[in-house]
Design a binder for these strands. Structure first.
Lengths: 386, 386
DNA sequence: CTGAAAGCGCTAACAG
DNA sequence: CTGTTAGCGCTTTCAG
């Protein structure tokens, strides 16, 4: 069986290797490029060339070098030493706000990650996920990362990890937030996108609204957010979306200070549901719930259902992002091209960075009408039916 | 506003930094630990200590060092040089079969990734995703990765990247497949799990079955898989599951050679659907479709629906993995703890590797009855209704 | 096609 | 608490 043969071969290679290692550990001298050269009686350059520039030596000699390498258990040039010498690590670092694992839960972050991975793959670059332990502020991990550049995905303005990244002498691209002058950026026009959405609701007649948003700062505040807190939010995206809503609704006479905005630290649909509940409990006359993300909106939808409120007849709910699940549910939302965003970030970082930096890429968003927005019911309808 | 103040500060730091860089690029001599020491009139050790062992020098001197560093635009010890010296990269490499981006599509792979990321995070280690361009066999990326160890996730027996990983003198853990003697491993007992599932179907009375499986080798074969191909499959997991099914059904007199097994190269529910169609077209008397993954099973479910076949009354469908979507659909399947698997892989790699290697961790699986399996209809029922 | 020289930037003993 | 000494393992001109 072919399989057996191949597996057997692999096993063989492996055993031989382990054997060498066991010995080298003992001898305390794992083969190195220099020792290999010595053994062969050639210069280090030649051995190096055997690996990196096959055309720089005779096939015969190259064969001999490689053969001897195998015999001595030399695993090829050490990547770290090579990186030090060439000043190239062959990898880009990725910094995320949350636990690494958070990114694997949020569809929008996942889309971004996929796009970025695609770009890296295309360029043969590794993707180094920087471990950010949310408990202790372990900025050290940023300094330890051997990478040629960083992509920073959606962090607060005052993130210490971001500061650490910027202090490193490598190119950096920030996705979404924060906006920092002089640093390459890729994102969307949050202001325009949220304004369009707000206008739709305004046109439908909504004036009494409630807002559910993501965390506004690094401190946890699961509850109402004052106007001041909104304006001082450390997350550019949330700040802009709230600001856009405020501006839009103000034009039709809504006093923003009277609009309840509920914030949630953790980004999950369960939090969206509890936030919606808090809003509805505080003011049962609310006709529309505007959520700054689809995840939260999905939770709001669930809460509405739990209360027996029909959407959109009794309550309008909107989201933001355009994740597949939202689309499947017919959520009224704004779609942003997350995959493209990731690719663009990668391209920006890996492209031959001309001296024309900083560069900024703003991707298009699209309003998705969905089926969860409708004109508000009048008070009468509320009591006596449509 | 606090925000403005902080943002302003960051901006300041940044500008100063860019300024230095612009200059250093010109001078062609970015500050280094040595130059900093010279400037300060102290030894390199002292500067190094200022960063790595704060308790080894007076607070005052340390302050001076750090202050001068800032002034000179010294970004702190170069991570690559440090890695070369300390022989620690502070990161683990992850090798996946497919495009990096594939992992972000498959819920099972994603769960594994999350678990692994969690483990790395906990240990303050970075996670270096190795770029595997499926087109060209770019084994070089494996050699270029500056990591302290590798986790290999579910690759074929003869994967050249795996061979490259094993040739590197760092610890390695293989998740799922292949099984290689002498290499640490974490996985499940596929044989037992699939046997339990097969037994359930057998007990329900199924004898005429069809099987949908994932790719069996590195070459594309979207169609029926001969028994020989099944036995020679280069993917241990698929080989074992098919083998388990064959053994179980043979005990009740089913001739495995007569059981149609359809293979699909790409792992998607669309492929599951087309495979199911192929099976049903070939033999309309099939009473149960056994799929070796939930993704494929979900597709089979869709195809059954498309044909107006009721599940489980007209057709039994089973999966494998226990992804959330499958659970939501009530799929009869086997759940495996993917998150735990990832964590275990990370722990295994990062734990103080005693000389008791190789180690192997086998995680428990759980049969999920679901609602997509039922006794087959008799031929009479098929024609005349229940 | 091959070799000699010159570090890349840093840390780790081990003495003071 | 501070400095001296020695490389980590490799690539890269620049000559032969």
């Amino acid at each position: 069986m072919i399989y057996s043969v191949r597996a057997g071969l692999l096993q063989l290679v492996l055993n031989r290797y382990r054997h060498r290692m066991a010995r080298s550990i003992h001898v305390r001298r794992p083969a190195t490029l220099a020792s290999l050269a010595a053994e062969l009686g050639v210069s280090r350059t030649t051995v190096s060339n055997a690996y990196n520039r096959p055309d720089q030596l005779s096939p015969e000699l190259r064969r001999r070098v490689l053969e001897t390498a195998r015999r001595l258990g030399y695993p090829g040039p050490d990547p770290v030493a090579r990186s030090l010498r060439t000043r190239k690590a062959g990898a880009v670092g990725l910094l995320l706000t949350e636990n690494l694992s958070y990114a694997f839960r949020d569809p929008a972050a996942l889309g971004f990650l996929e796009g970025l991975a695609l770009a890296c793959e295309g360029a043969g670059q590794g993707l180094h996920l920087v471990p950010v332990n949310p408990e202790r502020e372990d900025v050290a991990a940023v300094h330890r990362a051997g990478v040629d550049g960083f992509v920073v995905y959606s962090v607060p303005d005052d993130d210490p990890h971001l500061a650490a990244v910027l202090s490193r002498p490598v190119p950096t691209v920030i996705a979404d937030q924060p906006h920092i002058e002089g640093v390459d950026r890729v994102g969307i026009d949050d202001r325009t996108a949220i304004t369009e959405l707000a206008q739709k609701l305004i046109n439908l007649g909504h004036r009494r609204i409630g807002v559910v948003c993501m965390r506004l700062a690094r401190d946890r505040n699961d509850g109402f957010a004052s106007v001041e807190r909104q304006q001082n939010a450390h997350f550019h995206v949330q700040r802009t979306r709230l600001g856009g809503l405020a501006a839009a609704f103000s034009t039709v006479g809504v006093d923003w200070a009277s609009v309840p905005v509920v914030e949630r630290f953790d980004h999950s649909s369960a939090m969206g549901a509890s936030a919606a509940a808090q809003l509805l409990d505080a003011d049962s006359q609310i006709t529309a719930l505007i959520c700054t993300s689809d995840i939260l909106a999905l939770g709001a939808l669930a809460e509405a259902k739990r209360r027996g409120l029909r959407v959109p007849q009794d309550l309008t709910v909107t989201g933001f992002d355009g994740i597949i699940e939202a689309e499947r549910m017919g959520l009224t939302t704004v779609r942003q091209p997350v995959l493209e965003k990731g690719k663009a970030a990668g391209r920006l970082l890996l492209s031959p960075s001309e001296r024309t930096r900083p560069r900024s890429i703003t991707l298009e968003t699209e309003f998705l009408p969905g089926t969860t927005a409708a004109p508000p019911r009048t008070t009468e309808e509320r009591w006596f039916g449509p």
